[in-house]
Write a protein that binds this DNA or RNA. Sequence first.
DNA 1: GTCAATATTTTGATAAATCAAAATCAGGGA
DNA 2: TCCCTGATTTTGATTTATCAAAATATTGAC
Lengths: 219, 219
Amino acid sequence: MPTATVENYLKAIHQLAGDGERPVAIGKVASELEVTPGTATTMMKHLGGRGLVDYVPRRGVRLTAAGDEAALRVLRRHRLVELFLVEVLGLDWGDVHAEAEVLEHVISDKLLARIDEMLGHPTADPHGAPIPDAQGRMPEHAGASLADAGPGRYQLLQVSEDDGSLLAWLSDHGLRPGTRFDLLDHDRPAGILRLRIDGADGVTSLGTSAAGHLLVQAI
Amino acid sequence: MPTATVENYLKAIHQLAGDGERPVAIGKVASELEVTPGTATTMMKHLGGRGLVDYVPRRGVRLTAAGDEAALRVLRRHRLVELFLVEVLGLDWGDVHAEAEVLEHVISDKLLARIDEMLGHPTADPHGAPIPDAQGRMPEHAGASLADAGPGRYQLLQVSEDDGSLLAWLSDHGLRPGTRFDLLDHDRPAGILRLRIDGADGVTSLGTSAAGHLLVQAI
DNA sequence: GTCAATATTTTGATAAATCAAAATCAGGGA
DNA sequence: TCCCTGATTTTGATTTATCAAAATATTGAC
């Protein structure tokens, strides 16, 4: 049974790995977890010894199959807890991340199963992020960044940003995972997109920086 | 902000203090928490330095006002979480203690407040144990041990035992906090009590050892 | 191909919590 | 009163996770 710290390192590496093409730089891991590089190096050696990562000094790390499995287990817990806090306890969309960050490490399997059941075995968390199933399989959905999209009709799949303020803003403007909208135009030089959101009045503008956190699917 | 370990020591001392007449022996604390005596001694000095206990070497410890307040805060969390797990998530009466033991240290105030609200600001947990209020005031109820009771009519106030098996047995026999019953007779030499429980068929027998964990009130 | 800038690793320390085992104390019985 | 027994404290180590700062490697610029 990995410690909470080890779980956090695995999660961070998973997060940073992206498509898994190339190994994750140790410095990225360190800054993701807000520890000094030396601390991260030490931990990488430890994780390597436990068979959770392949660590090549000065090159980087990647998760082994075992490490990836462990990371997905934590991710599943995280997202189920988030969803539970929003759906059942009515906490704010933006508050739940921090809470889940700690609960994910301490909840028993039995309690997790109960939460999963109570939520009806959901496949996405409040941000629209997919929830790995109990076997650790990640339901992949093919979304592209709104920042790269041209005019057309889209559905918002996921908000990949854990900070509360963007979440709150989107929510206020009627934009949440599942919502459909028309991208009217995308002024790339200015970095501004204009949308007509289903169920909302008028036209909403947002910048490329925000749009970069929105995963959408053309419909 | 005290660590989870510190909170556990405070809780243990509170538990063992009883009426607070005399200081708690260090050995009791050590065995309650399943650590070696030396470890407990070290921690007592630490807690003393933090102003949470009065520690007199070779005599024992007692909680200071600050320590008592902290202990009650943890107790409140523990009991609210237990109740939540039973009432809202439908976990077994006997399973929740272990779960609460860890959650009590990590839940945010905001989440706790939400739980409290959702449960309607309850004053007793699933074992019937009183829940300190948000100001740390403990609603005392005057119960006596069933092991000391003579024939008569009683109401079960509290089961002071965290192990699941007794809880499950009682529950199966229709006996839970609030339940009323007649104590038909109490055979002290044999150590057996016979009860007629409201809402249950026939007569239920139980031994003094179990009865010792039941707090009742004559009605 | 050499060098400087940047990233990474090493080294030496620290804090929290713990243990095992040796040393010490306190109180009751002879 | 003296000593033995059992409780407690000390001492010296260990584990996990961390930092600061020195040492080292890599890489892109020239």
